[in-house]
């Protein structure tokens, strides 16, 4: 068991993490490259930067959105994301692993904070799952992977929480740790190929949307030629 665990949090983790970074870098590059090409093609290259920046800012701090149209699920989602991002990155034990294997480290969360955020993330994930099941429009939009993602994200949080806070037998500890690490590996591996890719793409959404309304100048001619509609009446 311990050798499997070592493998999962050693080479396998490194592989999955590297694939995630590469995958995310790839889609980020494609997005930026697409945006660059779009701007080159556009007839009018003036971008409404002020609006774009202000809306991106409002996305990072969605207070205005919440004030305008309060949406319970939205609040859950924001609270869920806080722990989801902060805990894995700033947990003392995780930073120690980085320190040992790669030699880099950064400040960690105080234990109590980490505990509170872990619990809140688990609770909010459950509530979001419940929301997906009972709130009508969310239920109607949801696909299988939307439920699966929430369940998958719950695994490392609950296993980590149990391992740290409960006195369990070494065998159970190792088993839970294995689940903890393997689920994290799977998550990393899947991120670039799923909707979770939004973690790197969404900051670009306002630019992309703004650019999408920038059309190339010879649309009529080009489309008519391709579709064989030259001279056809309206």
């Amino acid at each position: 068991m311990s050798s499997i665990l070592e493998f999962a949090r050693g080479p396998l983790f490194r592989l999955c993490f590297a694939l995630m970074i590469l995958g995310l870098a790839r889609i980020l590059f494609l997005d930026v490259w697409g945006a660059y090409k779009a701007l080159r093609k556009a007839g009018d290259k003036k971008m409404p930067w002020k609006l774009i920046l202000s809306r991106t800012w409002e996305w990072i701090f969605p207070l205005k959105r919440m004030k305008n149209n309060f949406h319970f699920y939205s609040l859950l989602s924001i609270l869920f994301h806080v722990g989801l991002i902060i805990v894995p990155v700033f947990l003392f034990a995780h930073i120690q692993l980085w320190k040992i294997s790669v030699g880099i480290f950064w400040p960690s969360l105080p234990f109590n904070w980490a505990l509170i955020l872990t619990v809140s993330t688990i609770v909010f994930a459950f509530l979001m799952l419940l929301g997906r099941i009972i709130i009508k429009p969310i239920k109607e939009l949801s696909k299988g992977q939307d439920y699966l993602w929430l369940l998958l994200l719950l695994v490392p949080f609950t296993t980590g929480f149990i391992c740290v806070n409960f006195s369990i037998s070494p065998g159970t500890y190792q088993l839970l740790m294995l689940f903890h690490v393997l689920s994290a590996d799977v998550i990393f591996l899947l991120i670039p190929f799923s909707k979770i890719a939004h973690c790197v793409l969404v900051p670009l959404s306002q630019i992309i949307s703004g650019l999408a309304w920038k059309f190339p100048p010879r649309t009529d001619d080009d489309i008519c030629t391709t579709l064989n509609k030259k001279g056809a009446p309206v």
Partner: peptide, 28 residues
Amino acid sequence: AILKHSNYRMVLEHFSRVSARCSHCAVA
């Protein structure tokens, strides 16, 4: 033809990757 002569591909790529099916938009 439209994809070929426009900038829509970029935006469809982006939107189809990030769509979260959260229904926030329904309130608006």
